[in-house]
């Protein structure tokens, strides 16, 4: 099972003669049993790409295929958009700005109800999602607007989780969060993976990519310049596509100046790197 794109092009001004493509000729294959990161500089087309995945943007050329869904630029063929959006949920950057209902619970129920669940089922799903994010019953009847920024973001996240999508895409989920909240978010990711959800994360945080993701797609100027495992991406030092290095990779690089064996070893954590140094020193 995978999410595939076939020669995917997208332009925000498709009618112009000399149109500029936000993404060009994207052919990627995202395995659904792995956590995938999509990285690249601001303006490289990451956000555009993920929005074609659930047909928020329709491809100018090419297609996206996932499960039984095919997204093309033919509006009529995209009748199944609603089902697709139930299958793939996107948590946008700063999702706290999509809350609008009077109470936390009704806001979280909003998604499932839109996708056809009865009030009863939606309530159940909402409660499950909220508890997964550590928001207890005392919050249910409160207005989302009186909550703190971090709590609001959790409620917004619950609003997507309650829809129970199979694939969840996070756009810069750690932006503007303090360290405690980032750790909480990583726990949530781990839990989501445990219950079989596919996570795709758009991020600038290379440590997150290196520590947490099994697959990475690098975009540059709207084109895919790398897809594969983070480890092999960061080991080919010569070709880093102007990405920042994860910290552990910086260490490995520095150590390799003194002992070239490390480049071929399987070091993934700081502890392992220190252990390696210790052994070499002996």
């Amino acid at each position: 099972m995978s999410l595939r794109t076939n020669s995917l092009f997208f332009s925000y001004t498709p009618k112009n003669k000399d149109k500029i493509y936000a993404i060009r000729d994207i052919n990627i294959d995202i395995p659904l049993d792995k956590t995938t990161a999509i990285v690249g500089k601001t303006g490289s087309g990451k956000s555009t790409l993920i929005q074609t995945f659930n047909a928020l943007l329709l491809p100018t050329e090419g297609s996206v295929e996932v499960a039984n869904f095919v997204v093309t630029n033919n509006r009529r063929k995209n009748k199944a958009n609603k089902d697709l959006r139930k299958y793939i949920g996107i948590v946008f950057q700063f999702p706290e700005y999509q809350l609008f209902e009077e109470t936390v619970l009704t806001d979280v129920k909003f998604g499932p109800k839109n996708f056809g669940d009865s009030d009863e089922v939606a309530t159940k799903k909402a409660k499950v999602a909220l508890s997964m994010l550590g928001i207890d019953e005392s919050y249910y009847e409160r207005s989302p607007f009186e909550l703190s920024g971090g709590e609001r973001r959790k409620v917004a996240l619950a609003g997507i989780l309650a829809i129970d999508p199979d694939i969840i895409i996070f756009d810069e989920p750690t932006a503007g969060l303090d360290n405690k909240s980032v750790d909480e978010l990583l726990d949530i990711f781990t839990n989501l993976r445990k219950i079989g959800k596919t996570i795709i994360v758009v991020t600038h945080d290379m440590n997150l990519v290196y520590d947490f993701c099994e697959n990475v797609v690098v975009l540059e100027n709207g084109q895919v310049v790398y897809q594969g495992s983070p480890k092999s991406l960061f080991s080919c030092n010569s070709q880093l596509f102007s990405l920042n290095l994860p910290n552990i990779v910086k260490i490995i690089y520095e150590i390799s100046k003194y002992n070239s064996n490390i480049s071929n070893s399987n070091i993934k954590t700081l502890e392992e790197a220190i252990q390696f140094i210790k052994e070499v020193k002996k």
């Binding site: 910290n247 260490i251 520095e254 100046k257 003194y258 220190i274 140094i277």
Partner: peptide, 22 residues
């Protein structure tokens, strides 16, 4: 971590620290 392993841990950048260790 270097301290824990009783290795030298001086320097202000990763480069310096690793250099000092070796």
């Amino acid at each position: 971590e270097l301290n824990k392993q009783l290795l030298s841990s001086s320097g202000n950048t990763i480069e310096e620290v690793i250099k000092n260790v070796f």
